[in-house]
Nucleic acid binder design. Sequence first.
DNA 1: CGCAAAGTTCAAAAAATATTGAACAAAATG
DNA 2: CATTTTGTTCAATATTTTTTGAACTTTGCG
Lengths: 175, 175
Amino acid sequence: MTQSAGKNGKRVRNGDSHRGLSQVEVALVEFFVSLADMAGMPKSVGEIYGLLFSSEEPLAMDEIIAKLGLSKGSASQGLRFLRSCQAIRTVYRVGDRRDFYEPELGLRNLAAGLLKEKIGPRLAEGAQKLAQLEEVIARESPNLRKVHENRIGRIRSWQRTGQKIIPFALKFLKG
Amino acid sequence: MTQSAGKNGKRVRNGDSHRGLSQVEVALVEFFVSLADMAGMPKSVGEIYGLLFSSEEPLAMDEIIAKLGLSKGSASQGLRFLRSCQAIRTVYRVGDRRDFYEPELGLRNLAAGLLKEKIGPRLAEGAQKLAQLEEVIARESPNLRKVHENRIGRIRSWQRTGQKIIPFALKFLKG
DNA sequence: CGCAAAGTTCAAAAAATATTGAACAAAATG
DNA sequence: CATTTTGTTCAATATTTTTTGAACTTTGCG
Protein backbone atom coordinates (compact mmCIF):
# COMPACT_ATOMS: atom_id res chain seq x y z
CA MET A 1 0.00 0.00 0.00
CA THR A 2 1.98 2.95 -1.21
CA GLN A 3 -0.52 5.64 -0.31
CA SER A 4 -4.15 5.58 0.67
CA ALA A 5 -5.03 7.43 -2.53
CA GLY A 6 -8.42 6.77 -3.95
CA LYS A 7 -9.49 4.51 -1.13
CA ASN A 8 -11.53 7.21 0.60
CA GLY A 9 -14.12 9.64 -0.60
CA LYS A 10 -13.47 13.17 -1.68
CA ARG A 11 -10.20 14.89 -0.89
CA VAL A 12 -9.73 18.41 0.30
CA ARG A 13 -7.30 20.00 -2.09
CA ASN A 14 -4.92 22.21 -0.29
CA GLY A 15 -1.62 22.32 -2.10
CA ASP A 16 0.16 22.50 1.20
CA SER A 17 -1.75 21.66 4.34
CA HIS A 18 -4.10 18.73 5.00
CA ARG A 19 -2.25 16.74 2.37
CA GLY A 20 -4.44 13.79 1.61
CA LEU A 21 -6.98 14.18 4.38
CA SER A 22 -10.64 13.66 3.60
CA GLN A 23 -13.16 16.30 4.60
CA VAL A 24 -14.24 14.27 7.58
CA GLU A 25 -10.69 13.78 8.71
CA VAL A 26 -10.07 17.50 8.46
CA ALA A 27 -13.24 18.26 10.39
CA LEU A 28 -12.40 15.79 13.14
CA VAL A 29 -8.86 17.07 13.43
CA GLU A 30 -10.20 20.61 13.73
CA PHE A 31 -12.68 19.47 16.34
CA PHE A 32 -9.97 17.98 18.51
CA VAL A 33 -7.66 20.90 17.95
CA SER A 34 -10.29 23.16 19.44
CA LEU A 35 -10.76 20.73 22.33
CA ALA A 36 -7.02 20.63 22.91
CA ASP A 37 -6.85 24.37 22.88
CA MET A 38 -9.70 24.51 25.36
CA ALA A 39 -7.72 22.22 27.61
CA GLY A 40 -4.55 24.25 27.18
CA MET A 41 -2.70 21.66 25.13
CA PRO A 42 -0.64 22.37 22.03
CA LYS A 43 -2.39 22.29 18.71
CA SER A 44 -0.26 19.42 17.47
CA VAL A 45 -1.57 17.22 20.25
CA GLY A 46 -5.12 17.88 19.13
CA GLU A 47 -4.19 17.21 15.54
CA ILE A 48 -2.61 13.90 16.31
CA TYR A 49 -5.42 12.67 18.50
CA GLY A 50 -7.97 13.86 15.95
CA LEU A 51 -6.23 12.01 13.15
CA LEU A 52 -6.01 8.80 15.15
CA PHE A 53 -9.61 9.22 16.17
CA SER A 54 -10.72 9.47 12.58
CA SER A 55 -8.65 6.55 11.41
CA GLU A 56 -10.05 3.07 11.23
CA GLU A 57 -6.59 1.58 11.49
CA PRO A 58 -3.84 2.40 13.96
CA LEU A 59 -1.20 4.68 12.47
CA ALA A 60 2.58 4.87 12.74
CA MET A 61 4.48 8.05 13.43
CA ASP A 62 5.69 8.50 9.88
CA GLU A 63 2.13 8.22 8.59
CA ILE A 64 1.01 10.82 11.08
CA ILE A 65 3.82 13.11 10.00
CA ALA A 66 2.95 12.68 6.36
CA LYS A 67 -0.78 13.22 6.80
CA LEU A 68 -0.57 16.21 9.11
CA GLY A 69 2.59 17.71 7.75
CA LEU A 70 4.23 18.14 11.12
CA SER A 71 7.84 17.80 12.02
CA LYS A 72 9.32 14.65 13.49
CA GLY A 73 9.95 16.49 16.71
CA SER A 74 6.39 17.66 17.16
CA ALA A 75 5.02 14.26 16.32
CA SER A 76 7.33 12.53 18.74
CA GLN A 77 6.51 14.95 21.54
CA GLY A 78 2.80 14.96 20.83
CA LEU A 79 2.67 11.17 20.88
CA ARG A 80 4.67 11.10 24.07
CA PHE A 81 2.21 13.48 25.71
CA LEU A 82 -0.83 11.54 24.55
CA ARG A 83 0.70 8.32 25.79
CA SER A 84 1.55 9.96 29.10
CA CYS A 85 -2.08 10.76 29.76
CA GLN A 86 -3.23 7.48 28.32
CA ALA A 87 -5.26 9.05 25.59
CA ILE A 88 -3.67 6.70 23.05
CA ARG A 89 -2.29 3.19 23.11
CA THR A 90 0.58 1.54 21.32
CA VAL A 91 -0.26 -1.32 19.00
CA TYR A 92 2.35 -3.82 17.80
CA ARG A 93 2.20 -5.33 14.37
CA VAL A 94 3.98 -8.40 13.17
CA GLY A 95 6.57 -7.75 10.51
CA ASP A 96 6.70 -4.03 11.14
CA ARG A 97 9.07 -2.52 13.53
CA ARG A 98 7.32 0.81 13.84
CA ASP A 99 5.00 1.54 16.74
CA PHE A 100 1.39 2.02 15.76
CA TYR A 101 -1.02 4.12 17.72
CA GLU A 102 -4.74 3.96 18.35
CA PRO A 103 -6.94 6.30 20.37
CA GLU A 104 -8.51 5.50 23.69
CA LEU A 105 -12.23 5.88 23.10
CA GLY A 106 -13.66 5.35 26.56
CA LEU A 107 -14.42 8.62 28.28
CA ARG A 108 -13.81 7.03 31.62
CA ASN A 109 -10.27 6.04 30.72
CA LEU A 110 -9.55 9.32 29.04
CA ALA A 111 -10.72 11.29 32.04
CA ALA A 112 -8.99 9.01 34.51
CA GLY A 113 -5.72 9.24 32.62
CA LEU A 114 -5.80 13.00 32.47
CA LEU A 115 -6.75 13.25 36.10
CA LYS A 116 -4.11 10.89 37.33
CA GLU A 117 -1.22 11.99 35.16
CA LYS A 118 -1.75 15.70 34.66
CA ILE A 119 -4.16 17.19 37.17
CA GLY A 120 -3.45 15.10 40.25
CA PRO A 121 0.22 16.03 40.57
CA ARG A 122 -0.51 19.75 40.30
CA LEU A 123 -3.22 19.47 42.93
CA ALA A 124 -0.82 17.72 45.25
CA GLU A 125 1.66 20.48 44.67
CA GLY A 126 -1.01 23.02 45.56
CA ALA A 127 -1.86 21.18 48.75
CA GLN A 128 1.77 21.28 49.75
CA LYS A 129 1.98 25.02 49.15
CA LEU A 130 -1.04 25.45 51.38
CA ALA A 131 0.68 23.57 54.18
CA GLN A 132 3.65 25.91 53.94
CA LEU A 133 1.24 28.80 54.11
CA GLU A 134 -0.05 27.69 57.47
CA GLU A 135 3.39 28.06 58.97
CA VAL A 136 3.68 31.61 57.78
CA ILE A 137 0.24 32.49 59.05
CA ALA A 138 1.00 31.15 62.49
CA ARG A 139 3.55 33.94 62.84
CA GLU A 140 1.14 36.76 62.04
CA SER A 141 -0.48 39.17 64.44
CA PRO A 142 -3.66 37.68 66.01
CA ASN A 143 -5.81 40.09 64.05
CA LEU A 144 -4.57 39.24 60.61
CA ARG A 145 -4.15 35.61 61.50
CA LYS A 146 -7.84 35.32 62.04
CA VAL A 147 -8.71 36.71 58.63
CA HIS A 148 -6.17 34.60 56.84
CA GLU A 149 -7.02 31.43 58.69
CA ASN A 150 -10.57 31.97 57.64
CA ARG A 151 -9.60 32.36 53.99
CA ILE A 152 -7.27 29.41 53.96
CA GLY A 153 -10.04 27.39 55.54
CA ARG A 154 -12.05 28.31 52.50
CA ILE A 155 -9.51 26.80 50.16
CA ARG A 156 -9.43 23.69 52.32
CA SER A 157 -13.14 23.40 51.96
CA TRP A 158 -12.81 23.68 48.19
CA GLN A 159 -10.32 20.86 48.21
CA ARG A 160 -12.56 18.65 50.32
CA THR A 161 -15.47 19.22 47.99
CA GLY A 162 -13.28 18.37 45.03
CA GLN A 163 -12.14 15.17 46.67
CA LYS A 164 -15.74 14.14 47.22
CA ILE A 165 -16.80 14.87 43.67
CA ILE A 166 -14.05 13.02 41.84
CA PRO A 167 -14.85 9.42 42.73
CA PHE A 168 -18.46 10.18 42.18
CA ALA A 169 -17.90 11.60 38.76
CA LEU A 170 -15.78 8.61 37.84
CA LYS A 171 -18.67 6.33 38.73
CA PHE A 172 -20.73 8.18 36.15
CA LEU A 173 -18.15 7.56 33.49
CA LYS A 174 -18.68 3.85 33.19
CA GLY A 175 -18.91 2.69 29.65
CA MET B 1 -4.99 55.58 56.10
CA THR B 2 -2.17 56.60 53.77
CA GLN B 3 -0.49 53.22 53.49
CA SER B 4 -0.91 49.97 55.34
CA ALA B 5 2.66 50.25 56.58
CA GLY B 6 3.35 48.73 59.92
CA LYS B 7 -0.18 47.43 60.31
CA ASN B 8 0.73 43.87 59.30
CA GLY B 9 3.47 41.50 60.22
CA LYS B 10 6.78 41.12 58.43
CA ARG B 11 7.28 42.50 54.96
CA VAL B 12 8.98 40.80 52.11
CA ARG B 13 11.57 43.27 50.95
CA ASN B 14 11.96 43.20 47.27
CA GLY B 15 13.11 46.55 46.02
CA ASP B 16 10.98 46.07 42.97
CA SER B 17 8.40 43.32 43.01
CA HIS B 18 5.86 42.48 45.72
CA ARG B 19 6.11 46.05 46.95
CA GLY B 20 4.49 46.08 50.33
CA LEU B 21 2.99 42.62 50.31
CA SER B 22 3.25 40.51 53.44
CA GLN B 23 4.60 36.98 53.23
CA VAL B 24 1.13 35.54 53.41
CA GLU B 25 -0.12 37.81 50.68
CA VAL B 26 2.79 36.81 48.50
CA ALA B 27 2.14 33.14 49.18
CA LEU B 28 -1.56 33.43 48.42
CA VAL B 29 -0.90 35.36 45.25
CA GLU B 30 1.54 32.67 44.16
CA PHE B 31 -0.98 30.00 45.00
CA PHE B 32 -3.62 31.54 42.78
CA VAL B 33 -1.14 32.28 40.04
CA SER B 34 -0.40 28.60 39.82
CA LEU B 35 -4.13 27.82 39.85
CA ALA B 36 -4.70 30.34 37.09
CA ASP B 37 -1.93 28.85 35.06
CA MET B 38 -3.42 25.40 35.59
CA ALA B 39 -6.69 26.74 34.22
CA GLY B 40 -4.98 28.43 31.29
CA MET B 41 -5.54 31.97 32.48
CA PRO B 42 -3.01 34.77 32.40
CA LYS B 43 -0.77 35.21 35.39
CA SER B 44 -2.12 38.67 36.10
CA VAL B 45 -5.59 37.24 36.61
CA GLY B 46 -4.24 34.87 39.25
CA GLU B 47 -2.35 37.70 40.91
CA ILE B 48 -5.37 39.92 41.13
CA TYR B 49 -7.67 37.26 42.46
CA GLY B 50 -5.01 36.15 44.93
CA LEU B 51 -4.54 39.67 46.22
CA LEU B 52 -8.27 40.22 46.63
CA PHE B 53 -8.55 36.83 48.30
CA SER B 54 -5.90 37.73 50.83
CA SER B 55 -7.33 41.13 51.57
CA GLU B 56 -9.75 41.70 54.38
CA GLU B 57 -11.15 44.78 52.68
CA PRO B 58 -12.26 45.24 49.09
CA LEU B 59 -9.65 46.95 46.95
CA ALA B 60 -9.79 49.53 44.19
CA MET B 61 -7.96 49.19 40.91
CA ASP B 62 -5.28 51.72 41.77
CA GLU B 63 -4.52 49.86 44.99
CA ILE B 64 -4.23 46.62 43.09
CA ILE B 65 -1.91 48.26 40.60
CA ALA B 66 0.26 49.67 43.38
CA LYS B 67 0.45 46.43 45.35
CA LEU B 68 1.11 44.12 42.43
CA GLY B 69 3.06 46.51 40.27
CA LEU B 70 1.04 45.82 37.16
CA SER B 71 0.11 48.20 34.41
CA LYS B 72 -3.25 49.90 34.27
CA GLY B 73 -4.06 47.93 31.15
CA SER B 74 -3.42 44.54 32.71
CA ALA B 75 -5.33 45.44 35.82
CA SER B 76 -8.31 46.67 33.85
CA GLN B 77 -8.36 43.58 31.65
CA GLY B 78 -7.78 41.18 34.52
CA LEU B 79 -10.60 42.69 36.53
CA ARG B 80 -12.85 42.58 33.52
CA PHE B 81 -12.13 38.90 33.05
CA LEU B 82 -12.71 38.08 36.71
CA ARG B 83 -15.97 39.98 36.69
CA SER B 84 -17.01 38.23 33.49
CA CYS B 85 -16.75 34.84 35.16
CA GLN B 86 -18.18 36.12 38.36
CA ALA B 87 -15.11 35.35 40.41
CA ILE B 88 -15.19 38.85 41.89
CA ARG B 89 -17.86 41.35 42.75
CA THR B 90 -17.96 45.14 42.63
CA VAL B 91 -18.49 46.94 45.92
CA TYR B 92 -19.61 50.56 46.06
CA ARG B 93 -18.44 52.89 48.76
CA VAL B 94 -19.97 56.17 49.75
CA GLY B 95 -17.80 59.16 49.08
CA ASP B 96 -15.43 57.27 46.78
CA ARG B 97 -16.02 57.13 43.13
CA ARG B 98 -13.68 54.27 42.47
CA ASP B 99 -15.00 50.73 42.10
CA PHE B 100 -13.90 48.36 44.82
CA TYR B 101 -13.59 44.64 44.31
CA GLU B 102 -14.01 41.64 46.57
CA PRO B 103 -13.59 37.96 45.73
CA GLU B 104 -16.36 35.44 45.40
CA LEU B 105 -15.56 32.80 48.01
CA GLY B 106 -18.25 30.20 47.38
CA LEU B 107 -16.95 27.34 45.27
CA ARG B 108 -20.40 26.78 43.89
CA ASN B 109 -20.64 30.30 42.53
CA LEU B 110 -17.09 30.28 41.28
CA ALA B 111 -17.62 27.03 39.42
CA ALA B 112 -21.02 28.03 38.11
CA GLY B 113 -19.68 31.32 36.83
CA LEU B 114 -16.79 29.72 35.05
CA LEU B 115 -19.00 27.05 33.58
CA LYS B 116 -21.66 29.41 32.35
CA GLU B 117 -19.47 32.18 31.04
CA LYS B 118 -16.36 30.44 29.77
CA ILE B 119 -16.86 26.73 29.25
CA GLY B 120 -20.49 26.58 28.18
CA PRO B 121 -20.13 28.73 25.07
CA ARG B 122 -17.17 26.70 23.81
CA LEU B 123 -19.04 23.47 24.35
CA ALA B 124 -21.96 24.81 22.38
CA GLU B 125 -19.60 25.72 19.60
CA GLY B 126 -18.24 22.19 19.64
CA ALA B 127 -21.72 20.74 19.42
CA GLN B 128 -22.40 22.86 16.39
CA LYS B 129 -19.23 21.68 14.67
CA LEU B 130 -20.33 18.12 15.27
CA ALA B 131 -23.64 18.78 13.56
CA GLN B 132 -21.80 20.07 10.50
CA LEU B 133 -19.72 16.93 10.55
CA GLU B 134 -22.77 14.74 10.18
CA GLU B 135 -23.56 16.36 6.87
CA VAL B 136 -20.14 15.63 5.53
CA ILE B 137 -20.26 12.05 6.70
CA ALA B 138 -23.56 11.46 5.02
CA ARG B 139 -21.76 11.94 1.71
CA GLU B 140 -19.09 9.33 2.32
CA SER B 141 -18.88 5.84 0.91
CA PRO B 142 -20.95 3.34 2.95
CA ASN B 143 -17.78 1.69 4.19
CA LEU B 144 -16.17 4.75 5.66
CA ARG B 145 -19.46 6.17 6.74
CA LYS B 146 -19.95 3.28 9.08
CA VAL B 147 -16.62 3.80 10.81
CA HIS B 148 -17.04 7.52 11.12
CA GLU B 149 -20.61 7.34 12.30
CA ASN B 150 -19.43 5.02 15.01
CA ARG B 151 -16.71 7.43 16.10
CA ILE B 152 -18.95 10.46 16.04
CA GLY B 153 -21.42 8.51 18.11
CA ARG B 154 -18.66 8.16 20.62
CA ILE B 155 -18.29 11.90 20.94
CA ARG B 156 -22.04 12.20 21.30
CA SER B 157 -21.92 9.77 24.13
CA TRP B 158 -19.18 11.83 25.80
CA GLN B 159 -21.36 14.88 25.55
CA ARG B 160 -24.35 13.10 27.04
CA THR B 161 -22.28 11.90 29.97
CA GLY B 162 -21.00 15.40 30.52
CA GLN B 163 -24.50 16.79 30.51
CA LYS B 164 -25.53 14.28 33.14
CA ILE B 165 -22.60 15.00 35.40
CA ILE B 166 -22.80 18.77 35.48
CA PRO B 167 -26.05 19.29 37.38
CA PHE B 168 -25.02 16.55 39.70
CA ALA B 169 -21.70 18.13 40.45
CA LEU B 170 -23.37 21.47 41.04
CA LYS B 171 -25.55 19.84 43.65
CA PHE B 172 -22.39 18.84 45.47
CA LEU B 173 -21.13 22.38 45.50
CA LYS B 174 -23.64 23.73 47.91
CA GLY B 175 -21.93 26.32 50.04
C1' DC C 1 -19.21 73.96 31.06
C1' DG C 2 -14.32 72.75 32.32
C1' DC C 3 -11.54 70.01 35.00
C1' DA C 4 -9.78 66.00 37.15
C1' DA C 5 -10.08 61.36 38.48
C1' DA C 6 -11.31 56.63 36.99
C1' DG C 7 -11.34 53.38 33.74
C1' DT C 8 -10.89 51.39 28.85
C1' DT C 9 -8.69 50.40 24.49
C1' DC C 10 -5.36 48.90 21.49
C1' DA C 11 -0.88 48.99 18.88
C1' DA C 12 3.61 47.86 19.95
C1' DA C 13 7.03 45.37 22.99
C1' DA C 14 8.05 41.60 25.92
C1' DA C 15 7.47 37.06 27.49
C1' DA C 16 5.95 32.50 27.12
C1' DT C 17 5.03 28.47 24.26
C1' DA C 18 5.13 25.51 20.42
C1' DT C 19 7.48 23.86 16.35
C1' DT C 20 11.25 22.70 13.54
C1' DG C 21 15.09 20.13 12.01
C1' DA C 22 19.57 18.48 12.46
C1' DA C 23 22.35 15.73 15.45
C1' DC C 24 22.01 11.89 18.25
C1' DA C 25 20.69 7.19 20.21
C1' DA C 26 18.59 2.59 19.93
C1' DA C 27 17.41 -1.39 17.74
C1' DA C 28 16.46 -4.46 14.04
C1' DT C 29 18.37 -6.34 9.58
C1' DG C 30 21.41 -8.64 6.77
C1' DC D 1 29.49 -5.04 12.60
C1' DA D 2 28.06 -1.84 9.17
C1' DT D 3 23.77 -0.16 7.60
C1' DT D 4 19.23 1.26 7.67
C1' DT D 5 15.08 2.31 9.93
C1' DT D 6 12.75 4.27 13.95
C1' DG D 7 12.40 7.32 17.32
C1' DT D 8 14.26 11.07 20.75
C1' DT D 9 16.40 15.37 22.17
C1' DC D 10 17.21 20.04 22.23
C1' DA D 11 18.97 24.59 20.62
C1' DA D 12 17.26 27.79 17.40
C1' DT D 13 13.20 29.79 15.34
C1' DA D 14 8.45 30.84 14.73
C1' DT D 15 4.16 31.65 16.71
C1' DT D 16 0.99 32.94 20.13
C1' DT D 17 -0.20 35.14 24.21
C1' DT D 18 0.39 38.58 27.67
C1' DT D 19 1.76 42.98 29.22
C1' DT D 20 2.65 47.73 28.78
C1' DG D 21 1.67 52.55 28.33
C1' DA D 22 -0.03 56.38 26.01
C1' DA D 23 -4.18 58.10 23.95
C1' DC D 24 -8.83 58.09 24.61
C1' DT D 25 -13.62 57.90 26.82
C1' DT D 26 -16.56 58.32 30.65
C1' DT D 27 -18.13 60.08 34.85
C1' DG D 28 -18.68 62.97 38.81
C1' DC D 29 -18.12 67.41 40.76
C1' DG D 30 -18.05 72.47 41.48
